[in-house]
Amino acid sequence: MLLAAPCFALPETVGEALTALADRPDAIVVAGGTEVMPDLLWRNRRAAGFVSLRRVGALRGTTTVGGELVIGAGTPVAALTGAPDAGLRAAASSLGTPLVRTEATIGGNVVSALPYRNLLPTLLAGGATLELTSATGTRVVPFDGFVTAPGRTRLAEDELLTAVRLPVPTGFADYAKVGRRNAQFVATVSVAITCRDGAVRLAFGNAGPTPLRADAVDTAATALFAHRATAEDLRAAVAAAVDPPEDTIASAAYRRHALGVLTVRLVTRAQGAAA
């Protein structure tokens, strides 16, 4: 039981959470803590308190409504490692570590909005939408465009991300990422794919300042899937569409190269699944 907490709130409903947030304008929302805690300790992030979503039961769990998975924003990533969507499953299963996945939430992954976050390409490729709730009601926005810059989103100050809706893929979906060791790594680059009725849709992680997709890439990928184009064509389309960072982990040239390779492989996997 919380005995007293002037700068800490542990609400149990979304309404209480919104009220708590309104009462503490300088507090930050924390769900699992896996992003926020290291930020506070290591990256000089400042805040004046926490509004924790840990006890908001309504934010946890996944339901299927009208062909969409509705995933509560507080659902831990560990719970998504068995999701019906193979792309989401793959992205969730390679996020962080088993000990981090029990705490990290899908909402935290989305709102932290860094271009290498594991789940984001899958949400972008899958055409996810987001439920944003404020005291005045809930609006639904596409995930595409939600992230505006590294760590920045269109979430208003008085809003909470309450759910992620992801159309249940009817065809092939997958996700893969590249890193410098074989487990527990931040994606150097990542790629998500969905393939429905012969139409391929791809999205990239750490290929630019925000999660990124491009019609030209999808067109080239769809053509490759139907054997109407070559892998080289698709790689060229990817290379033209991405603007990956250059840092101490990898050069931009390697990232561009790896994104092309990974993309072709995922289309190859889709072909294999369709065969």
């Binding site: 390679s94 893969a176 990422k177 590249v178 890193g179 060791r181 074989n182 390779v261 492989r265």
Partner: peptide, 10 residues
């Protein structure tokens, strides 16, 4: 590539 499952298809 390990848990990133990047090798499949390559």
């Amino acid at each position: 590539g390990g848990v990133g499952r990047s090798a499949e298809g390559g």
